[in-house]
Computed example of a mutant assay.
Amino acid sequence: MKLTGVELRRISMPLVAPFRTSFGTETTRDVLLVRAATTDAEGWGECVAMTAPLYSSEYVDAAADVLRRFLVPAVASVSSAVQVAPALARFHGHRMAKAALETAVLDAELRASGVSFARELGAVREEVPCGVSVGIMDSIDELLDAVGGYLDEGYVRIKLKIQPGWDVEPVRAVRERFGDVLLQVDANTAYTVSDARHLARLDPFDLLLIEQPLDEEDVLGHAELARQITTPVCLDESITSARAAAAAIRLGACSIINIKPGRVGGYLEARRIHDVCIANGVPAWCGGMLETGIGRAANVALAALPGCTLPGDTSGSSRYYRTDITPPFTLRSGHLPVPTGPGIGVDPIESELTAVTTGTEWLAL
């Protein structure tokens, strides 16, 4: 397999409703798609960077720039996806951009060989249970209506975004209204270890986990917090590689890990993190970044690995988009089927993709 070129495509995807977290509110996703063309097939990857550097230091314009100037030229001679990360290793950071490029190359390689992402990664399930992430709302009543709607749709786990001033009471209200529903919270780094006593007020609500309560660099703080609360601590932003995962587990900073392929540099590194979790008896699950069907297809395959034992953020397409750019992922009894076709197992719908495209750039190799 030889790469002949890479297309960078920007699309604009309006969300069905504003999605509010501690680091901002999104109403439309500015998405960067990467299409890798090879002598044997073509493949797609989705960059999950946000418009502004709020969730992480990466943002869409920077991802496009680093791909154009550095990353794409560096993979001109690769013949397999496993060669992408080593070819890019000399460039620091930019894991989301690297992940999009590696995914596109891997998709092309697997399509050419007729192998699915699920098979390549080692999936053991034909469908995966789905959770849903619920953003910060203007009122408790609005939150309860939203949660009730998602449960009616069949979601098997609810994740509430929290921040100081919006934490204990929303959790209390959801637990009282909906009983023993699987419930967890995500702080997106909004607290400090000095908030431990306050966060301990969440312990009576029997949460599955509290996700990334402290700054991503404060791994020792997470270890201290974990000793002061009984709710299991799950790391998200702090987990940037298999090495980081192993260190966090050894330090006692977490007992659960959220694996986001874009955050860690791609699905091959995500699988290594999964393997670290299995080796240490730590449950894992696949996180989400409001992906289109391209990113969602690959995430569902990852969520079907044996160590991903908790429902992930692999929601149906309609959770975020009225019209997806691929055939929609539709919830069935709280689960999504794992694609079985070659590569990621889905293709963009040309008319839908064209309708939301705001620009394309071809980089010949």
Rank of each mutant, 00 (worst) to 15 (best):
R227P: 13
D180M: 04
G165C: 07
S133H: 01
L160S: 01
R175N: 07
R157N: 04
Y155C: 04
V181M: 09
D195C: 09
V132C: 05
G154N: 02
E142G: 09
D206K: 15
V147L: 03
I162L: 07
R201V: 07
I210V: 15
D195R: 13
L144R: 00
L214I: 13
V193C: 12
Y150L: 06
D180G: 09
Q163H: 05
L208S: 10
E224A: 13
R201K: 15
D138H: 08
Q212T: 06
Q228G: 13
V171E: 03
L199E: 09
P129Y: 04
R172V: 02
R227F: 06
L151N: 06
D195E: 12
P204S: 10
P170V: 04
G154Y: 02
D138K: 05
V185K: 02
V181L: 10
A226C: 05
S133K: 01
A190Y: 14
D180R: 15
P213N: 10
A223K: 01
E153D: 14
D215T: 10
P164C: 08
D186F: 05
P164A: 04
G154M: 06
I136N: 00
R177K: 15
E224W: 11
D145K: 12
S139K: 04
L144G: 00
D138W: 02
D186H: 07
H198G: 07
Y191N: 11
F178W: 13
L160R: 00
R197M: 09
G165N: 03
V134W: 00
A223T: 13
A173D: 03
G154T: 01
G135N: 08
L208V: 15
V185M: 13
